[in-house]
């Protein structure tokens, strides 16, 4: 009986868990083939607790970054889209905007991961629509990079959550870190942003079971493949 209930629960959760958000059927390029610029991957590995202490989390090594980058390069090559790394950014204004937008993406991605993917956390006002955005302010990035879209990848070690949660309780009024702990050991998400409007046209988050050990090429490859599965053509 109990086993049955457990199976039913798993089935229910699986049915509830939505797949990646796809806002556009096909990508549109200004000049033929759509160009996607890859933003620097946002990786974080530790967190300060409410007590001001730092907790080391996990055993990432400096192999993780090259491994992730290699996996992304492999993914890029397998697609017929014009993928491109972030090029040299001339003026300080655009550079500042890029940095600001990467930081904002961290906050937006967390909000989406919670309110679209966590059971029971849906926002009623957003039940019928997905209208998260990084703002039309991103347009200059598209112009400077001659790109139509930007891909943001965010990979955080979720051990950080302990600290975040404590912080969230202490600062519950500001509620910036919250109960998004159930995301597993790795907290990862990726967004494809239309650089003309700032809209997030595609979004996916990493399931706990899907992530690999980022220190190994295989693990990083599996993680990126899981994260970018169903990436629009």
């Amino acid at each position: 009986m109990r086993a049955l209930a457990a199976i039913a629960l798993v089935a229910l959760l699986a049915a509830c868990a939505p797949g990646p958000h796809r806002g556009v059927p096909v990508l549109q390029g200004q000049a033929g083939v759509p160009v996607v610029v890859l933003m620097p991957v946002d990786v974080e590995l530790y967190e300060i607790t409410a007590g001001g202490m730092v907790e080391p989390k996990g055993e990432w090594t400096d192999r993780a970054r090259p491994a992730v980058e290699t996996a992304l390069a492999r993914f890029k090559n397998s697609r017929g889209i014009g993928f491109r790394n972030l090029g040299g950014v001339g003026d300080t204004e655009t550079r500042d905007l890029i940095l600001r937008t990467i930081r904002l993406h961290g906050a937006v991605g967390q909000a989406i991961a919670i309110h679209r993917f966590s059971p029971g956390q849906t926002l009623p006002s957003k039940r019928e629509r997905f209208d998260w955005s990084l703002g039309a302010e991103v347009a200059p990035i598209g112009r400077a990079q001659r790109a139509d879209y930007a891909l943001f990848v965010h990979l955080h070690d979720s051990y950080s959550s302990g600290g975040r949660v404590a912080m969230a309780v202490a600062a519950s009024v500001l509620t910036l870190g919250r109960a998004y702990i159930q995301m597993g050991r790795q907290e990862g998400f990726a967004s494809l942003v239309d650089l003309r409007t700032g809209e997030i046209v595609w979004f996916n988050r990493l399931l706990e079971s899907a992530g690999g050990d980022l220190r190994t090429p295989e693990g990083a490859g599996r993680t990126i493949a899981a994260l970018l599965q169903d990436f629009p053509r």
Binding site: E44, L45, P56, K57, E59, W60
Partner: peptide, 19 residues
């Protein structure tokens, strides 16, 4: 793990001061 952490700390900042 501690040594690993020390090395990996830098990763957090890699890519130009994210997070």
């Amino acid at each position: 793990a501690t040594a690993g952490m020390i090395l990996s700390l830098g990763l957090g900042a890699a890519g130009g001061g994210l997070g």
